[in-house]
Structure formats: structure tokens, C-alpha cells
Amino acid sequence: MRWLALPFDTFAIQLLNAVQYGLLLFLVASGLTLVFGIMGVINLAHGSFYMIGAYLAWSLAEHFGNLGIAIVVGVALSLLIGAALEWLFIRRLYDRDHLYQVLLTYGLILIVEELRSIVWGDDVHAVPVPDWLAASIPLTDTLSYPVYRLWISGVCIALAIAMAFVIQRTRIGMTIRAGASNREMAQSLGIDIRFVQLVVFAVGIALAAFAGMIAAPVSSVFPGMGNQVIIICFVVVVIGGIGSVKGALVAALLIGLVDTFGKVLELEVAGIPVLPELAGMSVYVLMAIVLLWRPEGLFGKRAP
């Protein structure tokens, strides 16, 4: 076995990238795991709203000339889109088999992709980093780290804390958890569970779209960009444990680390190159290991 170690400054930069990628994944996956855990709905189209977010950021930033305003307007639009989708389609799925959910939400992917093509076209776009975040912090004489990426991580951490606070400490959070454990009982205590579900779904969509918006300046905006994200997000949900927001955070960070370092480390076992050649598999190997060890995921509830 032979390792090729990274120089420390490269390592530091990759670590920051890994955390930033993981946190962004968490934003997308948290909505997916909540909707899955609370409403029991598998939303394959969740990643499409990551793409919609990126396109919204691009077109609204062009329109307003300001990414900040674009994000505020974009989040409001995403909430409305999410609420409308729940009301039109998703609420018909709660009592149905997963097969119907997969069919309907796969159909949504195709529709969203087609609408995107009609509204915005099929070109790849770049979104400029806002001026006040455009600087870089020098790490060594030759290396520096963009402030915008640090800002992404900071925003994601703030949102993760806010989410934990709402779910664990507020009456709304109690209501959401109660509804997840026993829908009928929650209703019989006067909770409008349909409204709670509409809000949770809309917030999940808005989080995915928001992730797409803040990622747009670093990842560019292109057709099908949600499809890569959704697969990794399902891996996050499965590793973290279905329905667990805490699990999604830990799993997303783990995946960020494994994916990033899988691509930059060099590893040879018995003369056969393993990394980075097989880096594309690293995330799935991680999932397999976690599932062998804990089939319900890191923070999932053990099946009774």
C-alpha cells in the first residue's frame, strides 16, 4: 500500500472545499429527508429545484443587477412554487404506494426540465460573485481562498442552526414531529396537518432552490444540474437515516470529505492504483459500509 500525502496548504484548501460542498448538500438533503420522514413521500424531483434555484439566481441577478435581491425574490418564488406543487400533486401521494410517488415525481423532473428549456433555454451560464464577496484570503504566497466559498459555508451553518432550533425548540417543531409520529392524533388535537405538510414541503423546496442559488456563482448554471445532486442527496438521506436532519448534516459532511479527498489523494494497494482512479465510487462505498454497520442509517430509527 502506498500513500501520496498532500502538502498542508493543499490539504487545508481541500478541507474547506469539502466542508462547503457537504454543507451545500445538507441544504438540499434536509428538505428531502424531512419530506421523506414526515410525509413518507419520495420526491425524485427535489434536485430539479436545486437547478431551478440556480436558473432563478442567474436570471433574477441579471434583471435586478444584484444577487442579494435575486436570492430574496427567488426564495419567495420557490416557496410559492413548492406550496403550489404540494397542493396540486404531492398531497395526493401521502396515502399511496412508493411506486406512485416515484412515477409522479419522475414525471415532474421531465416537466421541470422541459419548462426550464422553454423559459431559459439550454445554454450554460455563469453568475458573477457579488462584489463585496469577491475577495480572496491569501493562505500562502501562492495560494488563496475565495471569500465567497467561506460565505456559503457560513450561511449553510446558520441555516442548519436555525433549522435545528425550529425543529427542537419551537412549538412549530413540536407540531411537525408530532405529525410525523402520529398524523391522526395530531389532527385530533386540533392541528391542521395538511397545512403543516404544505409548509414543510414548500420550505424543503425553497431550501433546495436556495442551495442552487448560492451555489450558482461557483458551479455555473447548466441543464440537468439537479440530477447529479439528487442522487448524492438520496445517499445522504440513507446514510444519515431517513427523516433525521441531524443525520443529514453528518452524512452530508462525510460525503463532502470522502468525495473531495477521494479525488485528490493518491492511494495504491498492492501496486494497483485505487485513488483517485476509483474516486467516483467512494461515496457509494461509504454508503455500503454505513449500511452494513447500521442498516437504518447513522441517526435513523431502528425498525421496530
Binding site: 414531529r177 385530533s188 388535537l189
Partner: peptide
């Protein structure tokens, strides 16, 4: 059901129905 509950009716079901995750 939530509208009926909000009209002043409370229910203690068979088998209790506490929320174990709260």
C-alpha cells in the same frame, strides 16, 4: 378532524397515542 377538535372536542384514543418522539 382538526376543525372538529377546534370546536372544543378532545380525544383520548384507545391505545393512548402519545407522541413517543416528544
Amino acid at each position: 378532524p382538526h376543525r372538529i377538535a377546534r370546536a372544543g372536542i378532545a380525544y383520548v384514543p384507545e391505545g393512548r397515542g402519545i407522541f413517543p418522539n416528544l
